[in-house]
Design a protein around this nucleic acid. Structure first.
Lengths: 245, 245
DNA sequence: GTCTTCATGTCGGAT
DNA sequence: ATCCGACGTGAAGAC
């Protein structure tokens, strides 16, 4: 993967040149040092001086990480273009994008460490336990939902959005199924309710449209809302093992 | 901030010791190298070998970053405990937590670079352009919503959840206001609808409950859903400058 | 701890 | 490009 390019306690000009070269060569860069950060775009933010980890990715991503939390304190998404200047002993990194117009300015007051790497990564992440798995599970055995359920379509379009699974029950009623991979809250009920309302309006007046939420479990309030709206619940997890009560 | 502790192309045992010491001393750690990753918890995932950046934070956070994307390909939240072992020339980092039980295993097949830092950061991030700003803007001048609107409460509880702003109009009708800092979609309408329904049930029968969505703009489908439900829209941004059409 | 909702959410897939 | 919904969403505040 090639040797890392590193600098310990580099001068501002060394940092500027190293950053410019590493961006040009599409390396993965980490910088540790004291910095201030200003962001302006969809929202706006300012962050006073502190020691942080700065990460630049070859795809244009910028991350500013403090010593806490999983999410960066400031960031810029993939596709941004970076500019580096030195002014009065401070390295200034300006990252910009359009649509929406957003700017991130990182003022590096002091750099303790710089490192750049050639990263090679072709591996794909495979995830299981997703909503897609829950859908496959039901399509493979529709009786998991209820005896007599027949799936007719997935992602069926309605004026309120696409229904996860659309089908019919043993009495010929239309059935709208909304899937959640984890314990469901009020938002999931609202979503299901929107779809049922939309199909109620679209189908023959007189046709019954049932709405079923499929999730490992629901919160008390979600259960109450389901009941208020005449909607139903089927407890089911994305994978056979989990109970999720 | 103290000098960084770095190792270029270190041996597995060097990595193990450096990791253990840095975790013990609560340093911010970056490791660049070739690794495989296995995760098991709320879901499960596997990631084949590739060159990646590994970050360990003193608060127990673990991040695995590839050369692309803003989000880590795998991670562990704050509060996790890490264990490091060496087996057959591979450094194995196991990160665990309970509630929910989750495990992340990073197998470091090769380490190109190790660095650990003492991070000092007391600065607070200040953000503007949030939903809270939009709320303050309306409370400071309720006529922005409509002439005669009088706020009575914020975060008013209903059986369906808390209403952003609750008040009355010039005719004495109850008004439920749902705020969105950005262009609103169908989910926002569903949310507003839930609250209006809940108050309709809670208040005197016969009382009119109006629902108003406040956002810079809405999608076509959201507009249509608002119309179907007899809900209203007021176009307003968190900050005075933005138009957001 | 669980619940609920916001977020510069991010991301992918479809139009 | 926008729209829409999933996500191991994460994080904060209330209970």
């Amino acid at each position: 993967m090639g040797p890392p390019r590193t600098h310990v306690d580099p001068s501002p000009d060394t940092v500027r040149v190293a950053l410019e070269q590493s961006i040009e060569r599409e390396r993965l860069v980490t910088v540790f040092g004291r910095c201030r950060v200003v962001y302006r775009g969809r929202a706006a933010s300012t962050l006073g001086p502190g020691d942080r980890l700065l990460v630049l990715k070859p795809d244009g991503t910028v991350l500013v990480h403090t010593d806490e939390q999983q999410k960066p304190v400031n960031w810029q998404p993939p596709g941004c273009t970076q500019r580096v200047t030195v002014d009065d002993g401070t390295v200034l990194l300006v990252s910009e994008r359009s649509t929406p117009a957003e700017t991130l300015e990182v003022s590096l007051l002091n750099v303790a460490h710089f490192a750049a790497f050639d990263a090679a990564d072709t591996a794909e992440l495979t995830v299981s336990g997703t909503e897609a798995d829950l859908k496959e599970r039901i399509l493979a055995d529709p009786s998991l939902l209820e005896s007599g359920f027949e799936p007719r379509a997935t992602e069926r379009e309605t004026p309120a959005g696409a229904v996860d699974i659309y089908g019919t029950d043993s009495d010929g009623n239309a059935v709208v199924v909304e899937l959640k991979r984890r314990r469901a809250g009020p938002d999931a009920v609202g979503q299901l309710n929107r779809y049922v309302d939309a199909l109620d309006g679209e189908l023959h007046t007189g046709t019954t449209v049932r709405g079923i939420l499929v999730a490992p479990s629901v919160t008390d309030r979600a259960r109450s809302l389901l009941s208020d709206r005449g909607l139903e619940l089927v407890s089911l997890s994305p994978t056979a093992g989990s109970t999720g009560v």
